[in-house]
Amino acid sequence: MLKYAGTELNKARHELMMAASGSDALEWDGPQGDRPADWLRTKANSIEGGTSEIMLSILSRRVLGLGA
């Protein structure tokens, strides 16, 4: 559950930081430094080490007993 919630939260957190930084975060090496590169990197969080879909599948089978 923490893998799912944590990675999705991290993606949302970086989306918010990009929006709050406005055009400053649209430049590579701009006033926000690595922010755009960090933002793009978070998109892999919900894929690597087991996708969010795999995590949700495990939760529905093991925790909720659906389709077990």
């Binding site: 993606k11 990009m18 929006a19 406005g22 055009s23 649209l26 755009p36 933002w39 793009l40 998109k43 892999a44 919900s46 894929i47 690597e48 996708t51 969010s52």
Partner: peptide
């Protein structure tokens, strides 16, 4: 976002065009 996620790992790579779409979407959003 769905594009990258549904493509899985290859959606993240620069060899794949989805990243170009994601970056342009961010600039166009602002």
């Amino acid at each position: 976002q769905e594009g990258v996620q549904m493509h899985g790992g290859i959606g993240m790579t620069d060899d794949f065009d989805m990243g170009f779409y994601m970056k342009r979407a961010r600039v166009a959003a602002e």
